[in-house]
Amino acid sequence: MTADLRSIYTAATTEEAELCLGEFKARWDTEYLLIGQSWRRKWSRLAVLRLPSGNPQGHLHNQRH
């Protein structure tokens, strides 16, 4: 179940994440109905946060001075 959830929040696009959520609900709603319902209810807030992957050189994290 956690691997299926991970596919939602690591999706590259919102559309891909929605597809993964649909797959999660189809597979797990019989056992974990509230999880899928919660994701759907809060989707607009969850789908907004998309951080870029990787660690570009210009980021403060990589600066030494």
Rank of each mutant, 00 (worst) to 15 (best):
L34P: 00
D4L: 05
E23F: 02
I8R: 04
K42F: 05
W43P: 01
G54W: 02
R40M: 13
K42C: 11
N62Q: 02
T10E: 09
T30V: 06
E15C: 02
L33T: 06
R41Y: 01
P52N: 07
A3K: 03
W43E: 03
T2C: 03
Q57A: 14
I35C: 06
G36H: 00
G36T: 05
H61T: 10
L5S: 08
R6D: 07
Y32L: 07
L21V: 11
W28M: 03
T10Y: 09
H65K: 12
L51H: 14
E15T: 15
G36Q: 04
P52G: 08
S38K: 13
S7T: 04
H61V: 09
V48D: 14
E15M: 07
N62I: 00
A47N: 07
A17I: 02
L19M: 09
S7K: 04
S44M: 03
E16G: 12
Q57D: 08
R40A: 15
L19K: 12
W39S: 00
A17M: 03
L21P: 02
Y9Q: 14
A26I: 02
G54Q: 03
S7R: 02
L60H: 12
E15I: 07
W28F: 14
Y9P: 11
E23T: 07
H61I: 10
A3Q: 06
T13C: 07
V48Y: 01
G22Y: 00
H61A: 13
L49F: 12
E18Y: 04
A17G: 13
L21M: 12
R41Q: 09
H61Y: 10
G58L: 06
R40P: 01
R50D: 02
A17R: 05
Q57K: 07
L5V: 11
H65A: 12
S44R: 11
Q37H: 10
E16D: 13
C20F: 01
H61M: 07
H65P: 06
D29G: 00
G54K: 04
M1P: 03
M1K: 02
L5H: 05
L5C: 12
N62Y: 01
L34F: 04
E18I: 04
R50A: 08
R41C: 03
T13S: 15
T14G: 15
R64E: 10
Y9G: 15
Y32N: 00
L21C: 10
N55V: 06
L34Q: 09
L19E: 12
R27G: 03
T10P: 01
W28E: 06
S7L: 07
T2L: 09
L33E: 05
L49M: 11
P52M: 04
D29W: 01
S7P: 00
S53G: 13
R50L: 08
